[in-house]
Design a protein around this nucleic acid. Structure first.
Length: 336
DNA sequence: GTCTGCTTGACGGGTGCACA
DNA sequence: TGTGCACCCGTCAAGCAGAC
């Protein structure tokens, strides 16, 4: 951690200075100079998990040599990324050297002072965000909502735990500014969504610097048995009109037939045969009520290669023959 | 005679259980 | 999670009954 701070990073800083002097290279954010306040002009606010995020400012700022920004504070979060040059920052009462590639955060009410180098200008990417906790009204609606909600919460609450020191932008959060600017320039379809992604990308890459390897929730993993049960039942529903065997379904989802039987027992409290029969008979009942197709055709359409077998199966479940069932429910079709 | 609906009996696959 | 074994039941072919 110490090697990441601006103060304790003098070795890599010297190395960096030598490298910059030898081969300064093109300024990667040069295109943003064309209209430095382009992103500031956007009315951009969005919901991320249970948080509302309003982008107040998002721009490239240039400071001539020796420029001083006196002690001040904000009510919002201000993210500072040194894109080029060097200078100094005082966070509360602690001075730190700044150079290209460093990042620091000034949270709400954190008093800070900044000055650029006496000889070199400094370019800084600035992001001002107003972050508010919204009513938790959308949790538990599925489709990954809870996962995103948790990730947003983890990322945004970590902002308040960030130490007030400059650190190396190890995960290239700065690229998010370039991406946002590119989106503004090109204005592609999905502008708002892409812009939101760029801002979220900046936040995630920034907070990642302080991630500890322990205690992470990890990537979302499936309950594989339940997932396989869903795959199997979906396959049966899709193919109930064809001859289906346990082995065939098992092969489709890459498990042994025996294991598939266990999954049906544990996840569906049923058996492969019962489930297949249930799906087929449901379809047959529907056809009996809503069509006037002969029973043989209906049986064939629902996977009974020998229509004669339908009779004992049907009678076993509904206690009447298909013909009687059709007569009993003849009114149902007209009701619809 | 033909078609549709239904029943019956033999066989093989699915299931439950135990074990590795 | 895979395998073996015994048993049950789903599947199929053959055939019967009734309606037209």
């Amino acid at each position: 951690m110490a090697e990441e701070t601006g103060k304790a990073d003098n070795g890599s800083k010297r190395q960096h200075d030598r490298k910059s002097a030898a081969n300064p290279g093109p300024f990667p954010y040069a295109r943003m100079v064309n209209k430095m306040d382009a992103l500031d002009r956007l009315e951009l606010q969005f919901r991320w998990g249970d948080y509302g995020i309003r982008v107040l400012r998002c721009h490239l700022a240039s400071f001539p040599p020796g420029q001083i920004i006196n002690f001040h504070k904000h009510s919002e979060y201000e993210f500072h990324y040194i894109a080029k040059g060097k200078g100094k920052v005082i966070l509360v009462d602690q001075p730190h050297d700044l150079h290209e590639g460093l990042f620091y955060l000034t949270g709400p009410d954190l008093i800070h002072y900044q000055e650029s180098d006496e000889e070199d200008p400094m370019h800084e990417l600035c992001l001002h965000l107003d972050i508010v906790l919204l009513a938790e009204q959308r949790t538990g609606t599925g489709w990954g909502d809870e996962l995103e909600t948790n990730e947003a919460k983890e990322c945004l609450t970590s902002l308040d735990r960030m130490p007030a020191i400059p650190v190396v932008d190890r995960f290239h959060a700065m690229n998010g500014f370039l991406e946002a600017y590119r989106i503004w320039e090109e204005q592609p379809a999905g502008f708002y969504t892409l812009m939101k992604q760029a801002i979220v990308q900046i936040l995630l890459r920034t907070t990642r610097v302080f991630d500890s390897p322990e205690g992470k929730p990890g990537i979302p993993e499936r309950d594989m048995n339940f997932h396989r049960y869903q795959l199997a039942t979906q396959y049966i529903q899709d193919n109930e009109s064809l001859p289906i065997s346990l082995e065939q379904v098992a092969e489709t989802i890459n498990i042994s037939p025996r294991q598939l039987q266990r999954i049906f027992r544990s996840e569906g409290q049923t058996t492969f045969r019962d489930y297949l029969e249930h799906v087929r008979l449901s379809g047959i009942c529907s056809d009996l009520i809503h069509t006037d197709k002969p029973i043989e055709e209906i049986a064939l359409n629902h996977g009974y290669a020998n229509p004669n077998y339908l009779y004992p199966v049907f009678k076993g479940k509904y206690e009447v023959t298909p013909t009687v069932y059709r007569k009993l429910h003849a009114g149902d079709a007209r009701v619809r």
